[in-house]
Design a protein around this nucleic acid. Sequence first.
DNA 1: CAGCTCCGTTGCGTGTGGTGCAACGCATGT
DNA 2: ACATGCGTTGCACCACACGCAACGGAGCTG
Lengths: 259, 259
Amino acid sequence: MSQSLDRALTLMAELATGAKTLDQLAESAGVHKSTVLRLLRTLESHHFVLREGTRHYRLGSALFDLANQALEDRDVREAAGPALAALNDRTGHTVHLASFEDGEVVYIDKYEGRHSVRMYSRVGKRAPLHCTAVGKVLAADLAPARRAELAGSLDYEAKTGNTITTARAYLAELELVAERGYAVDNAEHEDFIHCVAAPVRGALGGVEAAVSVSVPKVLLDFDGLLALVPDLVAAAEEASVRNGWTKQRSVNKNSSERG
Amino acid sequence: MSQSLDRALTLMAELATGAKTLDQLAESAGVHKSTVLRLLRTLESHHFVLREGTRHYRLGSALFDLANQALEDRDVREAAGPALAALNDRTGHTVHLASFEDGEVVYIDKYEGRHSVRMYSRVGKRAPLHCTAVGKVLAADLAPARRAELAGSLDYEAKTGNTITTARAYLAELELVAERGYAVDNAEHEDFIHCVAAPVRGALGGVEAAVSVSVPKVLLDFDGLLALVPDLVAAAEEASVRNGWTKQRSVNKNSSERG
DNA sequence: CAGCTCCGTTGCGTGTGGTGCAACGCATGT
DNA sequence: ACATGCGTTGCACCACACGCAACGGAGCTG
């Protein structure tokens, strides 16, 4: 672990919450301001931060640049794009694309819903596996052995009253998800939101990402949410096909053993 | 300047071009692989990179997260969003939002055109001031003194046959832009593309960003491009109003002296 | 206009932590 | 079974990142 790099990354996280002055950064990082200055200078030379006026620093363009380059690199995103946009357009609800990243869910694309009550999220945000519909979809694709291992390693924080809090219940839920081909989050992550999600597969038949539709409960009751499933699954299949998947191979289950 | 941080940032730039193995990174950075390993580990702990399979590293979610948080922070972007989307919808062409960042232009938002021939760009990408329509708009707002200073400091790389290559010609062009209220890039940056741009103002009357429409020459000749100007200017004004600008204060020119 | 305070900036001496090396071990392929 | 390629580990050295303290400019106050 590199100390200075570690500090620099922490600084950037701090800066993400808004422009800061040198002293503020020095204090929140718990180091001398001259140290912060040096780090900022290096970051600045790479355009990771920039000076705003004479006494404020904020995140710079290199970040956007790298982030977008990296996103362009994720082929699923490109492949799924049109199907997700169409789904968003048809339903008017928020549509997410998420992928699995060491033990968590990461949102890699988002299409904002048209309604004023909206879920707060952001591309790049991470979420737990156990209380999200996308998480369940991604976990359900793993081979039974890894699935059990994973289920044992989660922390099952109870986000709401509905959150699944035991490995046993989670495994049973995954079983169900794998069988049905879609997952539900019945206000297990946030009290006022429920979601449904379906898998996006790749050329090898493995699940590479998950699409979800998130709806505030005030807009649609649980049955209303479930009524969206066929549309969702169709969109996910369209995305899968664009992503190189061929229906033939879908019999080949639990194939995504990558590592 | 921090050596290890500098190396780490270089690594990330390298990773942006695609997933790489440890040795590849070590070689391209010119350092020992154990050094790279340590840096990667630190980056990984902050989710700036992640391991793909067992022997490839790629950029991770923290990057998207920070980038989007930082973008949300840029109020102009949010304010201009609807107007840009509408403009994109009406014209079918690619719409960019750009801001000024130490001596260059940075794209902070983009709405992709509907046509198959498209300009290559990306949010976060940087471009020169002297050969882009947005650059001219942003530069034209500076006070005459800073304008002259800036014009003297540019390098005027001739991107195409039409590129402005002298400070004198650039200053004359800026004069014209300030007068007209919009700028043109007549294939001065890329041979096959021309653009028009207009300013987005803020509460103080100063220009905070620039909107542009970029059109491949094969789709529209120069006169056709100019015909888009009224629509563009209207969109830019709408964005300005949403951004806190009031028409009254627009007489107050050259007001954006921030530093 | 003087004096004060707040911050960014600079130079320097110290010792910590980042570096390269070489050896190890786990894969994969032949 | 052997060879090869690559990630990983422990170690010893000294560069380099660190904190300190002093400087200087900008902005306020009386």
